[in-house]
Simulated scan of single mutants.
Amino acid sequence: MFSSNYLGPLSRASCSRTFSAQGCDLCLKLYDSPSSLVKHIEICPLSAPASLGTKILPFAGSVDEKHTTKDAKAIAFNCVMVGGGTDGSLDLCARVCLVDEDEDIIFHTYEITGLTEEHLRNSKSHKEVQDKILEILYNGESARRLMSDSGKARLLVGHDLKHGLDCLRINYPGHLLRDTAKYRPLLKTNLVSHSLKYLTKTYLGYNIQTGEHDPYVDCVSVMRLYKRMRAQDHQVNGIGTPNSDSGFESQKAEELENMTPDELYQLSKSNYKCWCLDSKKAAGPVDF
């Protein structure tokens, strides 16, 4: 059983009542009893990561070799935009941050403008930042093998990734992107994205972006969202396989019209790739 926030309208009112009594609104997991849920709720909300502020890190603008040698499967990305041009309408990326799944910073820089003269003094050029990010993401993989699911290239996690990547003029394969602004279970019912601030409060239990924009806090939050969605434990048969037959194509229009809502629900299939498959792929092949 799942929350209506996760897989859309529930098929039965009894399932909704059960989740209301035994389900966690943050992590969306169902517990054996209301008492088990009460114990879980005490530890489920996460604490907000500490802000970096505007301090310059020891390895700002460079790769932290200690972390990039780890077997990181996914990297979270965030950048701070500033207005450029004579009227401020040009988006420029002023600050870039990458973190791994352990929330360790592996790349952090003040890029293009910096924030003060001190930050600007050691800032990296656009090309240097672009090359470093691609080096981390490619993970030693050749450009020709990026389209393969079995390669070493890392998943890139973020919120509204296209905006940041376009600003840095970086192209990365769509099947390696995990965007919380595009993931179907996190969208509004009209398929419009929520803000990262809303998603963090709703599914992680803390507030972000209450003052200045800190890319590290946003990076950690979007990585936590990805891992929380990836950890969803549910059946995989016919779920989350993109471009799969929805089940309706094999039915005649008259047959569909005579079906009950529950019958239509059982026949339907998701038309997005569920992030739980990322962890299942790492563990071994999944039978559909």
Rank of each mutant, 00 (worst) to 15 (best):
Gly84Ile: 01
Ala94Glu: 06
Gly114Glu: 05
Ile106Gly: 00
Glu101Asn: 05
Gly85Cys: 07
Glu101Asp: 06
Thr116Val: 11
Glu117Gln: 14
Phe107Asp: 05
Asp91Glu: 15
Leu98Val: 03
Glu118Ala: 15
Tyr110His: 07
Gly114Pro: 03
Thr86Val: 13
His119Val: 07
Ile105Ala: 13
Ala94Val: 04
Asp104Ser: 14
Gly88Pro: 08
Cys93Glu: 02
Glu103Tyr: 07
Asp104His: 11
Leu120Thr: 07
Leu98Met: 12
Asp91His: 14
Glu117Ser: 12
Gly85Ala: 05
Asp91Cys: 08
Cys97Thr: 09
Asp91Gln: 13
Asp102His: 15
Cys93Lys: 00
Gly85Trp: 10
Leu92Thr: 07
His108Pro: 01
Glu103Cys: 15
Phe107Asn: 07
Val99Arg: 03
Gly88Phe: 03
Ala94Arg: 07
Ile112Trp: 00
Ile106Lys: 01
Leu115Cys: 07
Gly84Phe: 00
Leu90Ile: 15
Glu111Gln: 11
Tyr110Glu: 03
Cys97Gly: 04
Phe107Tyr: 15
Asp87Cys: 11
Gly114Trp: 02
Glu101Gly: 01
Glu111His: 14
Val99Gly: 02
Cys93Arg: 00
Cys97Glu: 02
Asp100Gln: 09
Glu111Leu: 09
Thr109Cys: 15
Val96Ser: 01
Gly85Arg: 04
Leu90Ser: 12
Thr113Leu: 09
His119Phe: 08
Glu103Ala: 10
His108Phe: 11
Thr109Met: 07
Tyr110Asp: 02
Leu115Ala: 06
Glu118Asp: 10
Leu120Gly: 14
Glu117Met: 13
Gly85Met: 09
Glu111Arg: 03
Cys93Thr: 11
Gly88His: 11
Val96Ile: 13
Ala94Lys: 09
Tyr110Cys: 02
Thr113Met: 05
Tyr110Val: 02
Ile105Gln: 04
Ile106His: 00
Arg95Ala: 06
Leu92Val: 13
Val96Glu: 00
Glu101Ala: 05
Ser89Asn: 12
Leu98Ile: 10
Phe107Pro: 04
Ile105Arg: 08
Leu120Trp: 09
Cys97Phe: 06
Ile112Cys: 03
Glu103Ile: 04
